[in-house]
Computed example of a mutant assay.
Amino acid sequence: MIDILIRYGAVLADAAMVSIGVTASAIAIGTGLGLALALMLRCRFAALALAARAYVELMRGSPVLILLFLIYYGGPSFGVVLDAVPAGILGLGLYAAAYFAEIFRAGLASVEPGQIEAARLLGLPSLSILRRIELPQIAAFILPPSINQAIIVLKDSAVLSIITVPELTKAVTLISNETFAVVAPYLCVGLIYWTLVEIVAQGGRIAERRLAARISR
């Protein structure tokens, strides 16, 4: 395994950076779209709420691989041509958004309704209520599941090799084909994934402690 790391260290490092970049971008898309979907789910307009619920259920009920195939290989049929990396980011982001939507929905539901009504009586617009009252209160509630979802997105990025994204799984496949070794290359990549997951998890724990300390002041 050490020989593989020495010989292909640069290749694995480049692939790891691709995995990190794709994951971070997908999480950004998933978080933003997830919040929008959560707001739609509680919208008074039934059509918007129904559309958001249909999206969430469709994404949660389908394998991410199907979505990636539809975007990358099926996109040209609809005039949408994307390179592998943008297609991978978009696919993972759209998929993660369904799960982030449920996290935000549960968080928003935990806010005391009386606070919202009081803010409306004071004349605060909905955006201000969301930004000043709801989001600060739900931060501690949604942070742990959000970190967990971020880790899932990181591990899901391994399937992007199927659409030729040059991430870790693609790199280890090429290394294995070149060296005719299986165990050592995949152990190396497994170790890299474990390290990345631990970094995200530890970062989440630090954020939780800081948030808890800020709330307790």
Rank of each mutant, 00 (worst) to 15 (best):
V11H: 03
L12Y: 11
A16K: 03
A16G: 00
M17S: 09
V18Y: 13
V18P: 06
I20D: 04
I20L: 01
I20T: 01
I20A: 03
V22F: 01
T23Q: 05
A24F: 11
A28P: 08
I29N: 05
G30I: 10
G30D: 15
G30L: 13
G30V: 12
T31D: 02
T31V: 15
G32A: 09
L33Y: 08
L35V: 15
L37V: 10
L37P: 01
L37D: 00
A38F: 11
M40P: 14
L41P: 04
L41K: 14
C43M: 10
R44K: 06
A46N: 12
A46E: 10
A47G: 07
A47T: 12
A47M: 10
A47H: 00
A47P: 03
A49Q: 07
L50K: 11
A51R: 08
A51L: 14
A54V: 12
A54H: 09
A54L: 15
A54W: 10
V56E: 08
V56A: 02
E57T: 03
M59L: 07
V64K: 00
L65T: 09
I66R: 13
I66Y: 13
L67R: 01
L70T: 08
Y72L: 14
Y73E: 04
G74Y: 04
G74K: 04
G75M: 11
S77E: 15
S77D: 14
F78E: 01
F78P: 02
F78Q: 08
G79R: 02
V80P: 05
V81K: 08
V81A: 12
V81P: 00
V81G: 01
V81W: 03
V81I: 15
A84D: 01
P86H: 14
P86R: 12
P86V: 15
P86E: 13
P86A: 13
A87G: 02
A87S: 09
G88N: 08
I89C: 02
L90G: 10
G91I: 05
G93E: 09
Y95I: 00
A97T: 07
A98F: 09
A98P: 08
Y99V: 10
F100T: 09
E102K: 04
I103C: 00
R105A: 10
R105N: 06
A106Q: 07
G107Q: 06
S110T: 06
S110A: 07
V111E: 05
E112M: 07
P113Y: 13
P113R: 11
G114D: 13
Q115W: 01
I116V: 14
I116Y: 09
E117A: 15
A118S: 14
L122K: 02
L122T: 01
G123F: 09
